[in-house]
């Protein structure tokens, strides 16, 4: 298996009135073809920015993005057009991701028309195929987004993203705005599509139970940095980073017998504006000490299990 998308030391900074926001700071990871990487983290940790930087909706400040081994960090206009056909995005809010003035058909056909590769008949055929693929009823063709419920709207968003047969899709919290029963439908649709077409996903979410259902690998982000990454099974069995532990302890459980200790985080979130070197989680970490003021790097503690924590070994009794 080779990596379809690889990111090396990627940085995305925004300048704001009060300084530089380090939204994504030195992040490296790779996604293998046909696999799903789940990117989790709390609001504002830079997970959406990371996804948008990879598909060039946001400009990167530094680092490298590779697609099938090729450097695509700074594409020219023509290359960018080609790239956007291979890399797509599904948005979080199905109520703001569809233009209220375009019918379902118009929305799905827009990318096909813009690619200028298809004649009228093919566009018609492709539209039918896409609508069937994502499960939108034929009768909704000429409806407007406001006449559809959230689940169907999200299906339209998915159809638009898949119109040009991309290989890589960034799913930016595609189910967090939906009802629980519809969440499952959309998740299953995404899984089916992956099996049918062999899509590769970067699945961004703050919902750990969702990510467990769909991902092969989990990456945990905290304030612009990757703090832990591991294969899904491994991750849910054993987390090494104190932040990941706290995150997992926050999942509600239905098992009354299980004695669960909820780890409640204290302290303030460090600001992502001009952050100090060193572990960004230190100010909220119960294990933090002097060493945590030094910069941290991801370190392999198990098979494919990387952690960025100075005290990971001690804390987990591995020293």
């Amino acid at each position: 298996m080779s990596a379809l998308v690889e990111v090396k030391n990627l940085k995305t900074y925004f300048s704001s009135g009060r300084g530089t926001v380090h939204a994504v700071d030195d992040v490296s990871f790779s996604i293998e073809k046909g696999k799903t990487v789940g990117l989790v983290g709390e609001s504002g940790c830079g997970k959406s920015t990371l996804g948008r930087t990879i598909i060039h909706l946001t400009n990167s400040t530094g680092g490298q993005i590779l697609y099938e081994g090729e450097d695509i960090t700074h594409p020219n206009r023509k290359e960018l057009r080609a790239l956007r056909e291979k890399m797509q995005i599904i948005f979080q809010d199905p109520f703001s991701s569809l233009n209220p003035r375009l019918t379902i058909q118009e929305t799905i056909q827009e990318p096909l028309k813009l690619s200028k590769r298809y004649d009228k008949q093919t566009i018609e055929k492709e539209t039918n195929r896409l609508m069937e693929l994502v499960g939108i009823e034929e009768r909704l063709r000429n409806s407007y987004p406001h006449e559809l419920d959230g689940g169907r709207r999200q299906r339209v968003g998915i159809a638009r993203a898949l119109a040009l047969n991309p290989q890589f899709v960034v799913c930016d919290e595609p189910v967090s705005a939906l009802d629980v029963s519809i969440q499952a439908q959309i998740l299953n649709l995404l899984i089916e599509l992956q099996e049918e077409i062999g899509l590769t996903y970067l699945f961004i979410t703050h919902d750990l139970s969702v990510v467990r259902h769909i991902s092969d690998t989990i990456c945990v982000m905290y304030l612009g940095q990757m703090v832990e990454t591991a294969p899904t099974e491994e991750f849910f069995e054993k987390q090494y980073h104190p932040y990941s532990k706290a995150l997992l302890s926050a999942i509600p459980t239905t098992d009354l017998q299980k004695d669960k200790k909820r780890i409640i985080l204290k302290g303030e979130i460090t600001s992502a504006i001009n952050p100090q070197p060193g572990c960004r989680f230190a100010s909220r970490c119960i294990y933090a000490d002097e060493r945590c003021k030094q910069p941290v790097k991801l370190e392999e503690l198990g098979e494919g299990h990387f952690v960025a924590c100075h005290r990971a070994k001690e804390v987990n009794g591995m020293a």
């Binding site: 956007r84 948005f91 813009l114």
Partner: peptide
């Protein structure tokens, strides 16, 4: 700032088309 403007950019809409087709009518 709406997501459908971003979506339009991601499917290779030009700036002019985004303004004329997606922003002004709305």
């Amino acid at each position: 700032g709406a997501e459908y403007i971003e979506a339009a950019a991601s499917i290779n809409c030009t700036k002019v088309r985004i303004i004329l087709k997606h922003i002004i009518p709305n």
